[in-house]
Amino acid sequence: MKFSYTILYVKDVTQAIAFYERAFGLKQRFIDESKQYAEMDTGGTALAFATNEFANANLPQGFQENSLSKLPAGIEIGFVTEDVAAAFEQAVAAGAVEVAAPQVKPWGQTVGYIRDLDGILIELGSPI
C-alpha cells in the first residue's frame, strides 16, 4: 500500500487552485475540463481538489461540507517550511484565516494554524 493523494472538497476548484498558488507557491499539475477536479504539484503525494457537487455524486449519503462558518473538520493538511512566520503571513495576505499564530512547541518545532477559503485547517510547521 502506498499513500497517493488527499482530496479536499471545495466550493470552487479554480478558486482553491488560485488560493493555494498565492498562499503557498504551489503549481497546478492538472485540472479536468469540467473544472470539478484538479491536482497541485506537491512532489510524490498529490494534493487534489474536487467540488462539493462532485463529492455528492460519489457519496450518495452525503458528507459534511467544509465551511468557514463551522468548526474545522477533525483533520488538517500540513506544510513544512524553514520560515513559518513568513509563510503564515503570506497565506494570511492571500486570504487565509488565522487560527493560531506560529509558536515554538515544547518539542522545538514552530507551528501555526490557518484555515483556507473553504475552512479547511492547515498547519504550517518547521522541519522536525
Score class of each variant (00 low, 15 high):
Met1Phe: 06
Met1His: 10
Phe3Lys: 01
Ile7Asn: 14
Tyr9His: 11
Val10Met: 07
Val10Pro: 09
Lys11Leu: 07
Val13Phe: 00
Thr14Met: 10
Thr14Trp: 02
Thr14Arg: 15
Thr14Tyr: 01
Ile17Ala: 06
Ile17Pro: 05
Ile17Cys: 13
Glu21Asp: 10
Arg22Glu: 11
Ala23Asp: 09
Phe24Met: 07
Gly25Gln: 06
Lys27Thr: 14
Lys27Gly: 03
Phe30His: 11
Ile31Val: 15
Asp32Leu: 03
Asp32Val: 09
Glu33Cys: 00
Glu33Gln: 11
Glu33Lys: 07
Lys35Tyr: 08
Gln36Asn: 14
Tyr37Leu: 13
Ala38Phe: 00
Glu39Gly: 09
Met40His: 08
Asp41Ala: 14
Asp41Tyr: 06
Gly44Val: 05
Gly44His: 09
Thr45Leu: 11
Ala46Glu: 06
Ala48Met: 12
Phe49Pro: 03
Ala50Arg: 04
Ala50Phe: 03
Thr51Gln: 01
Glu53Cys: 02
Phe54Gln: 11
Ala55Ser: 08
Asn58Pro: 00
Leu59Arg: 10
Gln61Glu: 12
Phe63Gln: 04
Phe63Ser: 00
Gln64Ser: 13
Glu65Arg: 12
Glu65Asp: 01
Glu65Met: 02
Glu65Gln: 12
Asn66Asp: 05
Asn66Ser: 14
Leu68Val: 07
Ser69Pro: 02
Lys70Asp: 15
Leu71His: 09
Pro72Ser: 04
Pro72Asp: 11
Gly74Tyr: 06
Gly74Lys: 09
Gly78Cys: 14
Thr81Val: 15
Glu82Gly: 06
Asp83Ile: 05
Asp83Val: 09
Val84Phe: 06
Val84Gly: 10
Val84Trp: 08
Ala85Tyr: 07
Ala85Gln: 14
Phe88Asn: 02
Phe88Ala: 04
Glu89Ile: 09
Glu89Met: 05
Gln90Met: 09
Gln90Leu: 10
Ala91Asp: 09
Val92Met: 08
Ala94Leu: 08
Ala96Phe: 04
Val97Lys: 14
Glu98Phe: 00
Glu98Asp: 03
Ala101Glu: 12
Val104Leu: 13
Lys105Phe: 08
Lys105Asp: 07
Pro106Met: 03
Trp107Asn: 11
Trp107Pro: 13
Gly108Ser: 01
Gln109Gly: 01
Gly112Val: 01
Gly112Lys: 00
Arg115Gln: 15
Asp118Ala: 09
Asp118Met: 07
Gly119Thr: 04
Ile122Leu: 13
Ile122Arg: 00
Glu123Tyr: 05
Glu123Gln: 14
Gly125Tyr: 06
Gly125Leu: 11
Gly125Phe: 09
Ser126Trp: 10
Pro127Val: 07
Ile128Trp: 11
